[in-house]
């Protein structure tokens, strides 16, 4: 299946694109998509634990299953030490 990935701020600059399509196996989750993006752009790996995810216009957890055609957004972490809850 194919999903649409969107990147913002430092992620967009690191990857050099703000959106692209990603081919994923059936049953893929948000985490699967993130791992694919990190594989293509290892510079993002250190941010993994703090990245926030959205599908459509709602925040989701990294275990959220994806369906073909959905748009998944990766949001950069907060700097400045404020706590961002895991989800």
């Amino acid at each position: 299946m194919r999903v649409n990935v969107r990147l913002f701020a430092r992620y967009r600059e690191a990857v050099g694109q703000d959106r692209f399509e990603l081919e994923l196996p059936p049953g893929a989750t948000v985490e699967t998509a993130w791992a694919e993006v990190v594989r293509a752009c290892p510079a993002l790996a250190p941010f993994g634990a703090h990245t926030l995810f959205a599908v459509g216009q709602e925040y989701v957890g990294r275990d959220r299953p994806l369906q073909g055609g959905e748009e998944v957004c990766f949001f950069p972490p907060v700097s400045g030490g404020r706590h961002v809850p895991d989800h």
Binding site: A9, E13, L52, E58, V60, F75, P76, P77, R82, V84
Partner: peptide, 13 residues
């Protein structure tokens, strides 16, 4: 420098 979000984002659910 990107200072991260201008907002501290957390999931709402």
């Amino acid at each position: 420098v990107w200072v991260g979000p201008a907002t501290t984002i957390e999931p709402s659910s």
